[in-house]
């Protein structure tokens, strides 16, 4: 049975909104300077900028940042914005747990020594270690024999 993981990535959404607010503010400042030879600032304008950046930020996030991960025992589909990667677990030869920094983990799937694909476990709000062991099982790799549930829990807090 296919499992679909698609949580709202709040951090990415805020970054998108902030980026849009910054762009709109710069754009307004330049336009205002060219048209009125002054940077016009007023409360209604600020509210309009905020509403517009919320709207544009949401679309930017949906089209470029939102991550959806669908998988089962056979393979997976990873959508990051409009970019879609599909694969079968057996196509990959090994995997690792990779720390990107600040507690952000990915499960790195290696096709060979050089080519790899990252499954953003922390961004998907999955337990990175649990996902790693689950994928190892799908790939037919069992590191130490019995794969009990206890050892999958709570590593590392993301």
């Amino acid at each position: 049975m296919k499992r679909r993981i698609a949580p709202l990535q709040i951090g990415d959404l805020f970054k998108s909104i902030f980026l849009m607010l910054l762009l709109i503010t710069i754009l307004w400042a330049v336009t205002s300077l060219l048209l009125f030879r002054d940077i016009l600032v007023s409360r209604p304008l600020l509210v309009m900028n905020l509403v517009l950046s919320l709207f544009l930020g949401w679309f930017f996030y949906r089209y470029y940042r939102h991550t959806i991960f669908i998988y089962d025992e056979e393979g997976f589909e990873l959508r990051q914005g409009r970019r879609v990667v599909q694969g079968r677990w057996k196509e990959y030869s090994s995997l690792s747990l990779f720390h990107l920094g600040r507690g952000d983990f990915v499960v790195r799937l290696y096709r060979d020594e050089e080519e790899f694909l990252d499954l953003p476990a922390s961004a998907l709000r999955l337990d990175p270690s649990r996902l790693r062991f689950e994928v190892m099982k799908f790939m037919g790799k069992n590191p130490t024999g019995s794969l009990n549930e206890k050892r999958l829990d709570n590593f590392p807090a993301s």
Binding site: L97, F98, M136
Partner: peptide
């Protein structure tokens, strides 16, 4: 900076 872990 131990950043990558392999099992088995």
């Amino acid at each position: 900076d131990f950043r990558e872990s392999f099992r088995g």
